[in-house]
């Protein structure tokens, strides 16, 4: 459990160096600086009087701010791809897709930080023309100024990913050419992988993925490693607790009222697994990611901020 990744090593070295050069005060300031993971929980009113959109906007803004603001990831002139889960022909309240207001907020933040273009798109399971509309994401993203892009099947580029299980896969070039891909999944139950969170969201950048189901943890690990995640935002405002990943029955939707953001995809997925009632080490994708050194399973050991937002 205590394997030291290069990221951790550099991080701790920086802290130590800071402490050595600037004394304890400076070191303390570093600890209080941007976290690597933030969990923003809604502490305000819930129910009909508190619109979900308001909650989505505030939680997203606060979570991003807590990990250093969007400026930590987006430079002026960047092309950013916001990659939500738009897999299913379902409405936002059915919680099978990412909440549209989370996507909208992220698009706005990126543009405010000077991004040249923000694109939004996913390779869905149902028809894209239907899911983009039904999920509310296309309209919300366009409203915030994003380019909503349908993934043209004839344009996927087969790339060598060099994984243990996957050697090459077709990936949509937009994801490869973007300066930053923000991974924005919704936390859901999934019968094959138990949960579907950030890592599994990368299933939406590839084609020919049906056979991945024969070994989802390894294939998802390989795509994740290739995609080199830098920023993930986990939408857990509404979570689907059963009959996932499609859902459809509102009885399976629970209000978790939180959003987590971070730079460590495994940590976020570990947190998401706990949120959905599972031990992270029981989740195949989390374990595979951890074993491959893609991040920490013990998310509490990260520079973590937990916020209550009203």
């Amino acid at each position: 459990m205590s394997s030291l990744t290069r990221r951790d090593f550099l991080h701790q070295t920086a802290i130590t160096a800071g402490a050595l050069s600037m004394g304890w005060g400076a070191s303390f300031a570093q600890e209080a600086g941007p976290a690597d993971m933030a969990i923003a929980r809604w502490a305000g009113a819930t129910g009909a009087e508190a619109p979900l959109a308001d909650m989505a906007v505030k939680l997203t803004e606060q979570a991003i701010a807590a990990i250093g603001g969007i400026g930590r990831f987006v430079r002026r002139g960047d092309v950013v791809w916001v990659k939500p889960n738009i897999a299913w022909d379902r409405t936002p309240e059915q919680a099978a897709n990412t909440n549209p207001d989370v996507v909208k907020t992220l698009v706005r933040l990126c543009l405010e930080a000077g991004a040249k273009t923000v694109k939004v798109g996913d390779n869905p399971c149902d028809r894209a023309e239907s899911t983009y509309v039904k999920s509310g994401i296309a309209a919300a993203a366009r409203e915030a100024g994003a380019e909503v892009e349908f993934l043209d099947r004839s344009r996927f580029r087969t790339v060598a990913v060099g994984g243990d299980r996957l050697k090459e896969i077709p990936i949509y070039p937009g994801f490869l050419d973007a300066d930053l891909v923000i991974n924005v999944p919704v936390a859901k139950h999934h019968r094959a992988t138990t949960v579907t969170l950030c890592m599994k969201n990368y299933m939406g950048v590839v084609e020919e993925r049906r056979k991945f189901h024969q070994d989802l943890p390894a294939t998802i690990r390989d795509i994740t490693a290739y995609m080199k995640p830098r920023l993930c935002v986990l939408d857990a405002l509404r979570v689907l607790t059963g009959n996932g990943p499609t859902g459809g029955d509102l009885a399976d939707v629970k209000a978790a009222n939180l959003i987590a953001a971070g730079v460590d995809i495994v940590a976020l997925d570990a947190f998401g697994s706990e949120l959905l009632g599972h031990k992270p080490e029981d989740i195949g994708t989390v374990k595979a990611g951890f074993d491959a050194g893609l991040g920490r399973m013990d998310y509490r050991s990260l520079a973590l901020k937990e916020l209550e937002v009203v």
Binding site: D89, R191, A192, H213, Q214, L216, N243, T246, G247, G248
Partner: peptide, 25 residues
Amino acid sequence: LPHNYGRECIVCEEHCPLPKKAIYL
């Protein structure tokens, strides 16, 4: 595959759009 080749799969179950899933495992 799960019935005859000893491999995990269940893509069909994943896609089943019925709110209570017409495919069970």
